[in-house]
Amino acid sequence: MIVTPTWYLVLAAALFSIGAVGMLVRRNVIVMFMCVELMLNAVNLTFVTFSKTLNDLSGQVAVFFVLVVAAAEVAIGLALIVAIFRRRHTGTTADDISELRG
């Protein structure tokens, strides 16, 4: 048996779905963040797979940009979390932070 690109894509799809479901069901904001990272990684895997399939380096370059965005997002997101946690001492799950409602 040979490992075809399809295998990678199926795996990436599975990881993406797991990440998405985790993002929806977990209430700890930090874990939700980790699930976002999972989704991003699944996308990276697809990029690299297609880079190989299509014989094009651009896919790998795209991974770099995704990485940069992910890093920036983590920096800002975690800073936001720190700021929020500092303000409120109880009830720090995603459901508790719901002041912005209509």
Binding site: A20, L24, S98, L100, R101, G102
Partner: peptide, 16 residues
Amino acid sequence: RRAQGGVVRQYALVVF
């Protein structure tokens, strides 16, 4: 306005 509950996970569910 009931759609704007302020709960992020509900929004995320709709986005998904």
